[in-house]
Design a protein around this nucleic acid. Structure first.
Lengths: 156, 156
DNA sequence: TTATTTTGAATGTTGTTACATTAAATGTAG
DNA sequence: CTACATTTAATGTAACAACATTCAAAATAA
């Protein structure tokens, strides 16, 4: 039932090593489920994340730079992700008036509506396999935060 | 210092939601570091994982099917990963004698030597940002296991 | 002012992933 | 045995990611 059985590895070098493998495996497990979920809405996970950032800014626009900065996976392909969302009319681009190099990206009404629709289903999706109490979640969050603190690089 | 600051999101729908985002973000953080680490040895993360499975089988071979089954990220590109490793002479392929459809993949001496070299450095890498006690690791592991139990699919 | 450097976004390139298809070997039913 | 389905691995393809490069705009320096 634990990670050892899931990946069929009977021993680990250390508890810490086991924890790292567990994070990676659990992420993969979550990711697979998420990809399936968003597929129903014609979105990829990065597209959804980008939309959510834009909603956070709404009604203000965000520049591509801001998007890159805030994306969970800083892959810097923000420009192309915006392309995809623009093609679906979920976001709009216009040149920034203050800096003509920059581009203002703003979520459209259609984008907001889609997100609102997803919100409900996403909440159900999460509740569907929610298995931790709030207190356990807090413990988990603080442990994960602590791992990253162990070697924090310029994360800001 | 926590996930909220790291991704500049001030509030979450729930503690559970925050935990999920935290897992994803922490995984990305770990992954970035791992990719850098393995690059020095001319390996990608999937290549390393596959090699490690093969060492686990050594001196027995593994079929491609077994590799797919045990990989952390079951992307089913095992065949092409084996291609890469074979080109580097880290693994060898030969037709399985019992089933001529199957292919026996075995790690070479060179592969074993490379893994041994990596082992040392990898342990240092882990210790370099180890920030949890064994007890905390155990807590983390059990919480992550519990999340996956919440909606276990045929994970075997 | 002009020249140089830096910045913001887009694009090119290469390798990888995800998913479907193929081809050969095996298993199974008649 | 033949015919058909299944299994194993490899390959084709399209989308995607990572990383470098480009190009215009802006900031800075001379």
């Amino acid at each position: 039932m634990g990670i050892a059985q899931d990946i069929k590895q009977s021993s680990f070098k250390s508890q810490f090593n086991k924890a790292i493998v567990n994070i990676i495996y659990t992420n993969g497990w979550l990711n697979q489920s998420q990809v399936q979920f968003f597929k129903e809405y014609g979105l990829t996970t990065p597209q959804f994340n980008l939309l959510r950032i834009l909603r956070g800014q709404y009604p203000n626009p965000a520049t591509v730079n801001l998007l890159i900065e805030r994306m969970l996976d800083k892959s810097s392909n923000a420009s192309r992700i915006v392309d995809k969302l623009e093609a679906k009319k979920l976001v709009a681009r216009k040149q920034c008036s203050k800096d003509r190099r920059a581009v203002d990206v703003i979520i459209t009404e259609k984008g907001l509506e889609l997100l609102a629709e997803i919100d409900v289903a996403l909440h159900e999706w999460e509740e569907g396999f929610r298995s931790l109490t709030d207190e356990e979640c807090e413990t988990l969050n603080s442990l994960l935060d602590k791992i990253r603190l162990g070697k924090e690089k310029g994360a800001d």
